[in-house]
Amino acid sequence: MKTLLTLAVLLLTATASHACTGQTPCPIGDRSYHVLEPDGWDGETPLPVLLHFHGWQRQGTLIVQHDRIAGATERRGVLLVAPNGNNGTWTFRTPNSPDVPFARAVLDDIAARYPIDEDQIFVSGYSYGARMAWRFVCQDGADIAALLAISGTLPQATSCPTHPQNARQVYGLDDPVLRFPFGPNGETDHPVSLWRASMGCGDGAVIGEWQQRSFLTLTRTEWECAGGRVALDTHPGGHFIPHGWIARQLDELLGLPNSYP
């Protein structure tokens, strides 16, 4: 009887820990986040995590059903975690942002609910969410395997006490919303100059052009660094999440064959 009772308690605990998935928010204090499990997960294998900060006036409900984000994580065995910003936005402009400890608390809560691969925690974001992703890894990113930032950065003179092990940025050269941060002499590698300096990078190498969809060509430059690796993808378009960009980054980071979607 005691064994059956113990088993029942364990099953109830497991059910409760995974009760908030998809559109049902996970509460944490007076805030919340959303989580989406990958397809075919066996319930036991430790999961890589993608913590994604939504864009302005969005919420995690959109992220967990967004094909360019959730579609990539579901198919690659990655747990998607989407925190909700206060009033649909993030506090990213100053080092004392309350959203930094909130995001850390979300990661801690996820680790209590799921078996997590602590060596494969990725942080991403789009637009204002990209700026928040930068702020988080700038202040508390020592254990973050990679930053995946889309159409948004912090000012490159920002002082960052920490950095991720791998920094990846994509930006449209014709972005009309958060304009492309060209360097003082028009340099197109300026959006990642902060990471190149803080991570001790050498000279960049233009890897070449690549596509996930035929209508958008991206050009990649990479830097080998003492503290990791930096990559920048640019394209001629505007303010959007390129089809397959997150998917390709995850394929590369996880050592998977490149595929679309």
Rank of each mutant, 00 (worst) to 15 (best):
F122I: 07
L218N: 03
V81D: 11
Q59W: 10
S214F: 05
V177T: 15
E74I: 04
T13G: 08
F240K: 13
V49Q: 09
W56R: 15
P236M: 02
K2G: 10
L36E: 07
G60K: 05
L50F: 11
G202K: 03
C26N: 12
L47G: 03
T13R: 11
G129Y: 01
W41H: 04
V49P: 03
Q57A: 09
W56H: 14
S97N: 07
M132P: 09
T217L: 06
W134G: 01
Q120A: 14
P95E: 09
T89D: 12
A149F: 09
Q211A: 08
G200T: 08
P176I: 00
V106W: 04
A130S: 12
T45F: 07
W56A: 13
A167Y: 05
L148K: 09
S127D: 08
Q59V: 08
H54G: 09
L216A: 10
P164M: 00
F215T: 13
D39A: 13
V9Y: 06
Q249P: 04
Y171H: 14
G29Q: 09
M199T: 00
L4I: 15
Q249S: 12
T21A: 12
L47I: 03
T91F: 08
I110M: 08
G60S: 14
L148H: 04
I69T: 11
I116A: 00
L36C: 04
D30E: 14
V177P: 05
R220T: 15
A146K: 02
L256D: 09
R248Q: 11
W195A: 07
Q165I: 05
I150L: 11
V78Y: 00
G152R: 00
R179G: 05
G227H: 05
D42R: 10
G40T: 10
T158H: 02
A231H: 06
G125H: 08
A133V: 10
R31V: 02
L4D: 14
R229M: 08
L216F: 01
V192E: 05
T3H: 12
G29P: 05
P48Y: 05
L178M: 14
T3N: 11
L5V: 13
Q169M: 15
Y260P: 00
Y260C: 06
N84Y: 03
S198R: 14
G200C: 10
Q120N: 15
T162A: 04
L107M: 09
A16N: 07
L11N: 01
L194A: 12
G204M: 01
V206N: 11
P101V: 10
S214K: 04
I241Q: 05
T188V: 15
F102W: 02
L5H: 11
S159K: 13
P184Q: 11
T158R: 07
T61E: 14
Q59D: 15
M199A: 06
H52Q: 12
T21K: 01
G88Y: 10
F102T: 00
T21H: 07
H243W: 06
N87P: 05
G152T: 06
L47P: 03
V170E: 07
T91Q: 13
N258C: 03
H163L: 00
N86Y: 03
A167V: 00
T13A: 15
G22D: 10
